[in-house]
């Protein structure tokens, strides 16, 4: 998958956890999950679990802590899809 394809799918993973749908439509690799999309930190584990299920990958805690913005989420996912 290209980074753009991962980003498109990632929007669907993130969508249930943000009410800021306008910002979600315009996300880029610099979009911060908490500050920009106003996702509550209590939902970060949900996003990781949902991403694991969607891409059939395992994201360990050392990788999970990097998933703070869209770009680093794509990095972690694309590394595990190789």
């Amino acid at each position: 998958m290209t980074r753009q394809e991962i980003l498109t799918e990632l929007k669907k993973v993130i969508s249930p956890y943000t009410t800021n749908k306008e910002m979600l439509a315009d996300i880029n690799e610099n979009t911060d999950l908490i500050r920009d999309l106003k996702i509550n930190s209590a939902n970060l584990v949900d996003i990781i679990i949902d991403a694991e299920a969607k891409y059939n990958i395992e994201i360990d805690y050392d990788a999970a802590d990097k998933m703070m913005n869209v770009g680093t989420c794509i990095d972690v996912i694309s590394e595990r899809l190789k």
Partner: peptide, 21 residues
């Protein structure tokens, strides 16, 4: 930190793949 216990997913929280993170 405050957690709204009415907003958490209890069933998911009890799954090892969730709480082990």
């Amino acid at each position: 930190d405050i957690v709204a216990l009415t907003a958490i997913n209890a069933a998911r929280t009890k799954q090892p793949e969730f709480y082990s993170k």
